[in-house]
Design a protein around this nucleic acid. Structure first.
Lengths: 212, 212
DNA sequence: CGTGCGATGTATCGGTCCGATACATCGCGG
DNA sequence: CCGCGATGTATCGGACCGATACATCGCACG
């Protein structure tokens, strides 16, 4: 999961670890608290060993003038490679069962802007099925096994069931939107925002991540 | 977390691993998919090494007659010890920060029937604070950093924010109920405090599952 | 009558990720 | 001038998961 998220983020721009963590936290704030350096740094090294990212030199332009005074030691900036982009595309394409659990789905969803519509639809439907199964499980427990459980446990199940039903409805909406070719729920209209350099998704949802 | 849940469940009755997993899945179905054996069995061994649980002999009464024909090999039944009960009480008492994350809170909540009211209140309030912080973080991102993010990421945050607001409301209700001395939302009446060591639940919510 | 399949049941292994911890630099306010 | 919070990199032990292996039991279907 972390691998996927890192490759996705580095496609927007090169970053060093600390920055990566902040961006990750901002992008995935809805589904995870904050990723730990204890997983981030090892993963970065793993991705580098696999050739999917490389260290890029800090201070790219106009570096001469203040060379070593405030020497900026540390600060390892990572950059995605062509193989890394391929890897990311491959990870998107093969949506396994782990793509539908809470974290996996959230991370994939966060990068839907880089995912083609067919895959988006497939993932949304897979997620819906999974949540529906969880919902049925909870209904079973609340129905058949209710008297075996105490009031607090029941209340927990009820709250969980409610969350499931709500998420299914949310997914239905998203699926309907996908099918009708629109971007997610909100009107959103213009898209003429200050969308500088890197990203510029064409009017409807489609993203077309550029392949060499 | 697993340690806590196992000690909690074994207080209701002795069980073997497979059964433990099923009960765990039923009780925690709202918050976790299913406990993996890859964590369950090692944890059981750890708890046993610490002296908090022991292996209990299978086939307690009337065992003579069918001794080895269908020999029932395997089936290690675990039973909580006095030290285990102490340990569980201690784990309830010291509600650390990990008690307020999604999983930790869910597991603690599932055993609220074995938790005193003051601690229940403390945990509910701790959880509320944590969710409120997450909510503020999401509002920040949706407010200040909105134009940096694509429509899908924003939709994810919105959905997360919605879930936060809903959970805060849920917690408020539960807290109000606790303060007024009632059990969770549903009428439920009783809460007669038959606080006996092992278990001897008075009429209303308590569990009592019997073994064959 | 057998046979195969799904439920019951115990167990290990490799891998991912977290939480705590350590350490170093920088800018700013008291 | 000194401390403190933000920035920044890094490791270690431990918790938990997913895949896998293996053995038994009952029963449904051919």
């Amino acid at each position: 999961m972390l691998e996927f998220a890192i490759l996705g983020l580095l496609q927007e721009s090169p970053m060093h670890g600390y920055e990566l963590r902040k961006e990750l936290t901002a992008k995935l704030g809805a589904i995870r608290a904050a990723i730990s350096y204890g997983s981030l740094y090892p993963t970065l090294r793993r991705l580098q060993a696999a050739g999917w990212i490389t260290e890029a030199a800090e201070t790219p332009a106009t570096a001469e003038e203040v060379p070593a005074l405030t020497s900026r030691r540390g600060r390892v900036v990572y950059k995605i490679t062509a193989e890394g982009k391929e890897r990311f595309a491959q990870l998107i394409a093969q949506a396994g069962p782990e793509t539908y659990d809470d974290t996996g789905f959230g991370v994939h969803f966060a990068f839907f802007a880089r995912t083609d519509q067919a895959t988006r639809l497939r993932i949304l439907e897979g997620r819906r099925r999974k949540i529906e199964e969880r919902r049925e499980g909870l209904r079973d427990v609340l129905g058949r096994a209710a008297e075996r459980l105490d009031a607090y446990t029941l209340e927990l199940q009820r709250h969980g069931l409610d969350a499931c039903e709500r998420e299914v409805r949310w997914l239905e909406e998203l699926i309907a939107n996908e099918r009708s070719g629109r971007a997610p729920t909100v009107p959103h209209t213009g898209t003429a925002g200050g969308r500088r350099e890197d990203n510029s998704p064409p009017p409807p949802g489609e993203t077309r991540n550029e392949r060499p």
